[in-house]
Design a protein around this nucleic acid. Sequence first.
DNA 1: TCTTTGATGAGAATCATTCCCATGAAGGTC
DNA 2: GACCTTCATGGGAATGATTCTCATCAAAGA
Lengths: 129, 129
Amino acid sequence: MVETARNTRQRRAVGAILDDLDGFASAQEIHDILVRRGDKVGLSTVYRNLQYLVDAAEVDSLRGDDGEVLYRRCSAGHHHHLVCRDCGRTVEVEGPAVEKWADRVAAEHGFSDVAHTLEVFGTCSECGA
Amino acid sequence: MVETARNTRQRRAVGAILDDLDGFASAQEIHDILVRRGDKVGLSTVYRNLQYLVDAAEVDSLRGDDGEVLYRRCSAGHHHHLVCRDCGRTVEVEGPAVEKWADRVAAEHGFSDVAHTLEVFGTCSECGA
DNA sequence: TCTTTGATGAGAATCATTCCCATGAAGGTC
DNA sequence: GACCTTCATGGGAATGATTCTCATCAAAGA
């Protein structure tokens, strides 16, 4: 018998929130939304399911300024984020030049097995008004 | 009378550790080194002084995978880091093209007040052997 | 030496996140 | 549908980094 992830009410609820969200949100925020909405889901369960989704590459996570981890459903493939630090609104962006730069710089210094993190933060046009 | 930062024993001790370190270290690690060395410095004081140094741009900080904040004395000016994920050895690198790319992308999407985080991780030549 | 005032430190407080474990419910099987 | 196995859940405790509090200390100037 093959092990499959169970399709629980709670897992569906977390997924539904992520579908509705435009930008990144913390586990606590997602939990708050669920509670306000009337879905009873434990905080531990929210964390667990977010982690499942991250492992399954269905959700991207990044760390905000204050160290909180933020989550967002994202498209496949390597990309970076332009995030509004006020409202969290996010634009996925690509930077082929950056990828090449990182690889080149690493190679120049003899580093192998290279990875990089790159996020751009700013204030979006709406929040800046 | 002008307000100046006082040159305390504890502040000098934290600075001395940073001078000796090659790579990034956490506040707790720095505190451990001080204690082992026999310098009696409170943990709060280590945090405070590191924060002073960061504010004074004498020290760079970044967040490791586990969310811990790491500190390292760095040269002035905007730069990024190529960090060995095994031994922590760090090379400061510059990427003017990346800066421009980030600003351009942000501007294209109407974002203002732009900042970015970029760190490159890899395995250095020594650790890769 | 004396005074002023920022600096220190020990522990409490905070906050996100993870752990624990008794209970619940998917999903397969008959 | 009843049953069983096993993973999922949840609520509260535990963890761990960081910050806060505040009584006490010690720079640095007068």
